[in-house]
């Protein structure tokens, strides 16, 4: 890999880790969604550097749409829609930090200690075309299964989120959130 490639990997890697961290450090829901998108763009750029142009770009394309949907959902359902007020909404904080740091240390140790076989992808090949032939050739069943799963999820998501339910309208008998914070806490 060239010097430029290594530099790009380091820059994008650090950027995607930092922006991923900022997702949970920001006070604004919209910023959180777009920090997450920035993290995905960083990973997408690393994928492009690793000869997987198609996958990297598809990842970015998917995430841009998904993050906007996410921002809309947050403003629809979550508190503090458009503000920058201080916001800490966490539970079991210490356990979560320990789990996060623990999983990082475990995986990083494995990454550094394990001995990986060195068999790099050939330089001259066109991975995009190879992936296309693989998707619609030998591994068509896998690809089609993913498609069928997505179709099932579309139907399932509409069924779950729809206003109608098995026992009448889904919001029948629903409870408005209490306006009094003390009552909300109890």
């Amino acid at each position: 890999m060239s010097v430029l490639g290594v530099t790009a990997i380091v820059v994008f890697g650090v950027a995607s880790v930092v922006t991923g961290w900022l997702v949970f450090r920001t006070d604004s829901m919209v910023r959180a969604a777009y920090w997450l998108m920035a993290s995905f763009v960083g990973v997408g750029a690393m994928l492009v550097t690793l000869d997987s142009q198609f996958l990297g770009l598809i990842l970015i394309l998917m995430m841009a749409g998904e993050m906007t949907i996410m921002a809309i959902f947050m403003v629809m359902y979550m508190m503090n829609p458009a503000g920058l007020n201080p916001m800490v909404m966490v539970h079991q904080h210490r356990t979560a930090i320990a789990a996060g740091v623990g999983s990082f240390l475990l995986l990083a140790t494995v990454a550094l200690v394990a001995d990986f076989p060195a068999d790099p992808a050939p330089a001259g090949a066109d991975p995009t075309a190879e992936l296309g032939f693989e998707l619609l050739g030998r591994s068509m069943l896998v690809f089609e299964s993913a498609g069928v799963a997505l179709l099932a999820v579309m139907i399932g998501a509409v069924a779950v989120a729809g206003k109608w339910g098995r026992f009448g309208d889904a919001d029948a008998g629903s409870v408005e959130p209490p306006l009094d914070p003390e009552e909300a806490a109890s």
């Binding site: 949970f24 979550m78 966490v90 539970h91 979560a96 996060g100 740091v101 995986l107 990454a111």
Partner: peptide
């Protein structure tokens, strides 16, 4: 190196999924 980056992102994800209260 890249796997360490991946591990760091994964760790942050674990922290977020366990610590946050808001569904989104």
């Amino acid at each position: 190196l890249i796997l360490v980056f991946s591990a760091a992102i994964f760790g942050i994800g674990v922290y977020g999924a366990l610590s946050q209260q808001s569904f989104v």
